[in-house]
Computed example of a mutant assay.
Amino acid sequence: MATRRTTTKPPKNISPAPAVCSPCNGSGMVAATVRVGRKRRPVGQQDGLCLNCLGSGLAPDA
């Protein structure tokens, strides 16, 4: 009886997952501290658009 040859399947071309923006962690929003008064004391935070990825959540260099 002849020996049975098995071949491996070639790996599929799987595209890598898109890189996540590091300052906003992929959300597209970052917290900005709000300061008021003459001494510029911090009062709270408000959400703002991430200027690194412009709100897309994907890293611009990838």
Rank of each mutant, 00 (worst) to 15 (best):
Gly37Cys: 06
Asp47Trp: 13
Arg4Asn: 11
Thr33Trp: 07
Val43Lys: 15
Arg41Gln: 12
Leu58Ser: 09
Gln45Trp: 07
Gln46Thr: 14
Lys9Leu: 13
Pro60His: 05
Val43Pro: 09
Lys9Gln: 12
Arg4Ala: 11
Thr3Arg: 09
Lys39Gly: 11
Leu58Asn: 05
Pro42Met: 06
Gly26Ala: 04
Val43Gln: 15
Ser56Thr: 09
Asp47Ala: 08
Arg41Leu: 08
Ala31Trp: 01
Arg4Thr: 10
Thr8Arg: 15
Ala17Gln: 07
Gly55Trp: 02
Arg5Asn: 09
Gly26Val: 00
Asn52Glu: 13
Asn13Tyr: 12
Gly37His: 07
Cys24Phe: 03
Thr6Phe: 01
Cys24Gly: 05
Val34Glu: 14
Ala31His: 02
Arg35Trp: 10
Ala32Gly: 08
Thr3Cys: 10
Leu54Cys: 05
Leu49Arg: 14
Arg38Ser: 07
Gly55Met: 00
Arg40Cys: 02
Ser22Val: 10
Val43Ile: 15
Ala31Ser: 04
Ala19Cys: 07
Val36Trp: 09
Thr7Ala: 08
Ala32Pro: 00
Pro11Glu: 09
Thr33Arg: 14
Gly55Phe: 01
Ser56Val: 00
Ala31Gly: 00
Ser22Tyr: 11
Leu51Gln: 12
Val34Thr: 11
Arg41Ser: 06
Thr33Val: 15
Asn13Ala: 14
Pro42Cys: 10
Gly57Gln: 07
Lys39Asp: 14
Gly55Leu: 00
Ile14Asn: 14
Ala59Cys: 15
